[in-house]
Write a protein that binds this DNA or RNA. Structure first.
Lengths: 222, 222
DNA sequence: GGGTGTCTCCACCCTGGGGTCTACGCGCGA
DNA sequence: TCGCGCGTAGACCCCAGGGTGGAGACACCC
């Protein structure tokens, strides 16, 4: 430990971006009062933020989501691409699921709502610089819920099918005809039909349409 | 701000649980040295942890995932259910996706790997008590990836299809035959075939197998 | 050696599905 | 008023796909 800039006593260098002057100035003051944080720049939109990051190479960029000229998500993406040493923490009033996910996918290390206090913000900034991601608990719950939906027990329905049958099934799920599958597997069409019939009876399927649905549910296609 | 116990100068009361004595003692020492953190109890398994939480009502429980008698996930679930005022932060060496998701679903507010330093742990503890969730950045990325998979841009591929066609498509994706669809929609089979042909040509599909795949990708079936 | 399972292949049958065309009633906007 | 899109419907053709039965080759295990 004690290897990070902040823990060594050197202040965390932060650039912030928010289009509302009041909020921006408020943040500058607020963060400036905190030990361990040094605000080295503040911009009013995404492009300004990018320029400031390029100029100061801060440890963290604290950015609002809604901004004119290049929004928070886009800014995040660009900063992560062009200045990977700078972590990004998003601060926003709007907490709809889309922007949350979009920002995190763009590479944001934190996602705070504007009711966070100075301490919480400071913590998130330090965490980001230190390889941790801090997200408002409620939003994190939504994220977990979304991720949970995406984890459909996967496979093991396929239990009982031979490897060849599974192979055929995936090709069926890809929308291929028997002739195409035969060509792809370099076997005769008769063979493919045999496999198809076998897997149908094993899995209780009636036709390839049901097979495709089965494959998707089993998670062997997507 | 300054409304949380920690910010008021009062130390964050923490109970920790880890079955490995070395790690446990190490953590007690480590956390004890930190200002703002007071370790009020340490247990070797889930049941001990539960008892200690019941006795001390700490702000945060720092718990290992792998433990004899009631593992980390189960402990988390019970603590959240019985002592909702106590937040839970999970600390683990194993970072497979399943346990991550399981722990967060059980109500954990943080998820740290054991290579986290004292500072990072302290930050996560304070964040948890303050309504923030702190997750190791790499793990957070996996979580986001999982959540993203669950959000398949939805619709807009379906653009161009009439409502009736979409309706037919979903039934096809459910594995129904034309006759079944006709019965379900109370129309003649000829009508169904017409809709089917229309949607095939509109969406560039060759047969119902491809249609099923299309439906899944478009997110109108699952 | 015999049994069992998988992969391979063939022949035959037959139905459902896909392609095309035509047609009618309805609602809606030009 | 006319045209257009949509939902409805029927007729026709044709073939890919699904069902059945049989069979040879190879591998594995008892």
């Amino acid at each position: 430990m004690a290897s990070t800039p902040d823990s060594a006593g050197v202040a965390l260098r932060v650039v912030l971006a928010d289009d509302q002057a009041v909020v921006r100035e408020g943040l500058v003051t607020l963060l400036g009062l905190l030990p361990g944080v040094e605000v080295v720049g503040a911009g009013a939109d995404g492009l300004q933020a990018l320029a400031l990051v390029g100029e100061h190479r801060p440890d963290v960029l604290l950015v609002d989501l809604r901004m004119p000229r290049c929004d928070g998500v886009e800014t995040t993406r660009r900063v992560r691409a062009e200045f990977p040493a700078t972590e990004v923490v998003v601060l926003t009033t709007y907490t709809d699921d889309d922007s949350l996910l979009a920002a995190l996918r763009a590479g944001a290390r934190g996602f705070l709502t504007k009711d966070a206090d100075a301490e919480a913000i400071a913590r998130a900034l330090h965490a980001a610089a230190d390889g941790q991601s801090t997200v408002d608990a409620e939003l994190q719950q939504r994220l977990v819920a979304a991720a949970t939906r995406a984890t459909p027990v996967r496979t093991k329905d396929v239990e009982g099918l031979t490897s060849r049958e599974v192979e055929v099934l995936t090709l069926i799920a890809a929308g291929m005809s028997n002739t195409e599958i035969a060509r792809a597997l370099v076997v005769s069409e008769a063979t493919v039909k045999t496999h198809v019939n076998h897997l149908f009876s094993k899995a209780g399927l009636r036709d390839r349409a049901q097979a495709v649905a089965f494959a998707y549910k089993a998670g062997i296609a997507d």
